[in-house]
Amino acid sequence: MERNHVLAQFEPRQENLLLILHSLQNNNPQNYLTQDDLSATADFLNLTKSSVYGVVKYYTMFSLKPRGRHLIRTCMSPVCRLLGGRDILIELEKLLGIKWGQTTKDGFITLEPSKCLGCCGNSPALLVDRTLHGNLTKAKLREIIAGIRNPSKLINKRGRQCQKKK
């Protein structure tokens, strides 16, 4: 969707700022807010760009750097840490070959720690995009990663086939 179309869904009032930023970020295939997004939002709401930037930097869910198409947020709350959340994060880093805060080389998955996902009854937990996974084990982690990776292989295959035909 065009940026202007996203903005047009909202009334130009400052109280909608967070909703607008969420929509713009979700609209970006790389899950982040560009400098142009900030400028356009500031113009739309009649705010300064610096004040929009200030809001973006305050909230951890917004990113100013490109991220992967899928976000994995691991819970790092005291409860998840207690029940092995750290090992889960280390295992994930090993499986994906990246450190937390980084994106895989193919730009597919970004790994981020989150403070508490409100899933302490099923610790340790993580969030893949919009889906919550609890009671994690190393085996379950591999399944989850394979689940995210699998559709990507199909898309890549198709992409390659298309190129060959050309």
């Binding site: 400052q14 930023l21 909230y59 951890t60 869910m61 917004f62 989150s114 403070k115 508490c116």
Partner: peptide, 18 residues
């Protein structure tokens, strides 16, 4: 958008105002 502090009533109010 990912802030624990916004559970406090005044922080929530500020956040709600954008």
């Amino acid at each position: 958008a990912g802030s624990y502090l916004c559970g406090e009533e005044f922080c929530l109010v500020e956040s709600l105002e954008g």
